[in-house]
Design a protein around this nucleic acid. Sequence first.
DNA 1: GCTGAGGCTAAGATATTCTTGTGCTCATGG
DNA 2: CCATGAGCACAAGAATATCTTAGCCTCAGC
Lengths: 301, 301
Amino acid sequence: MARRLPPLNALRAFEASARLGSFVAAAAELRVSAAAVSQQVRRLEQYLDTPLFQRLARGLALTEQGRDYLPELSAGFNLLGESTARVRAKRADGVLTLTTLAAFANGWLLPRLHRFRERAPRIDLALRTSREIMDFRRDALDLAIRFAPTPGRGLHGEELCSEELFPVASPQLFGGRHMPDTLAALADYPLLHDTDAGNEQPWLGWRGWFERAGLSTANVGRGPQFSDSIVLIGAAVAGLGIAIGRGPHVAPMLARGQLVRVTQESWKSPWRYWLTAPAAHFRRPVVRIFVDWALEEARQP
Amino acid sequence: MARRLPPLNALRAFEASARLGSFVAAAAELRVSAAAVSQQVRRLEQYLDTPLFQRLARGLALTEQGRDYLPELSAGFNLLGESTARVRAKRADGVLTLTTLAAFANGWLLPRLHRFRERAPRIDLALRTSREIMDFRRDALDLAIRFAPTPGRGLHGEELCSEELFPVASPQLFGGRHMPDTLAALADYPLLHDTDAGNEQPWLGWRGWFERAGLSTANVGRGPQFSDSIVLIGAAVAGLGIAIGRGPHVAPMLARGQLVRVTQESWKSPWRYWLTAPAAHFRRPVVRIFVDWALEEARQP
DNA sequence: GCTGAGGCTAAGATATTCTTGTGCTCATGG
DNA sequence: CCATGAGCACAAGAATATCTTAGCCTCAGC
């Protein structure tokens, strides 16, 4: 008749630790101290009477038991989490005003939005794309997605995703010819530039890339410039040259074959995409539901 | 990056309540008071901002939200519970000495035992089938399965399953003829009797059945008698007559078509099958693992 | 119209869980 | 080769969360 379950919070602590590979990281996800996670995991190990981690001086390694255990736990918690999110979202109702870069909206948000509509059919999204930093005091904004080193002063922020960059071009640019496979060889093709880029964020500009590789930057300024990433990408798709593709902005074009990666080079940006707003906004149900959904989307491979 | 989960203990309280249809029943399963369950469910409803139950004067009814929610939660908790049980069982090691009625072992336990071997490959079962009540003080017994109204004096017990009874016979007994469909019509066939039955437990004897139906019991004592349910069933399978089939004892024969139910009559026994032993035994890992497994098996449809 | 089952609430008791602060180990880098 | 810092363990007290108890309410069934 009965069902016997292990201590659930200990289980959650283990699942997070195993998934993230560290008590410190798990503690951040669970918003408790690392010591708390350590204690919870110990409790579970006692309950099971078997070690789940090998404690190394620097970090953790799963034991065989732990390795077998993790995937099923994750699946179980996913079920709990997803079904809960659905229940929560179904009756929420209202408008969510969101700003983000057009290119991010286009590359990341729009292709996923049908799933949000499914989950929260009664929340309407009002999307404001703008290159300016919006002011929460002035504008009637619920939430912003920002690319920045930190969430922003005075604002609460949750990390949405990181960004990997790599050279991309239309396959038509090369006709049948061999595609260049080194950074140096790219200089033979027209390079497309983002106007803003390259000062603070060297990974956004060709100059940064050539300097990092120790190559001459003499001719690196040549080529057309674009003030907006979305237009820049459009130019690359049209075969006008090679652009520095920002992962989240170009993923759908890569998936459709409109763009391909050129060379194996890549650069992982130290900045992050943040979901950000004054802390109070995050307590609005409509915002919370969107944020939870977005974070979940970002966790998918 | 992050995953957001609802309060897990509240979730478990809801799952149990919804599955069992009552806070009182859920409280028994979770081994807390009904008030605690009520509070936990309320907490979850607040978290979700939606009602999950309609509170009726006498009992509960799921709302639409709750109805959608339950199956996924159950699936999630099943994953957690089953994978945990596997991890727990894998290293346990030893012998479990168990007594039970031969017919119950044959009809219920043996067909399921391959799954137990899978889960706990290093636990060997020593099965002692006996019609006598075993004495935990005298015999080296870990656990007994007993059919009784209560677990037994001085012993801890967990309810394994109930028992439904119904007339059964080999389909060959009727040749091509019409199968009797009323209790009264059974009297035309040989009735098979369990020697012990019919005094304390009227549902085990034909006399009890005929009395309950208000029929004459004049000829009800006729027919062969058997001192052991397993032999009685064998006789029924061999086409010797109609027996009172005890659900857990005859399930595999029904599944294989060796027996069929005769008439739609059935009687739900007020006694239960108990897993029972001195409380201390239940704390032995080997016992706990078997008990958890058996309870889980009993929950399956 | 009783009675009992089942649920609710409030308040205080009890447990669990978390944080803080300290100490340890070892990989990394100067 | 030593200093540094990341990451984990441990202990004790603090902060919560959770449970129980006890009394009340409603309605179904007798």
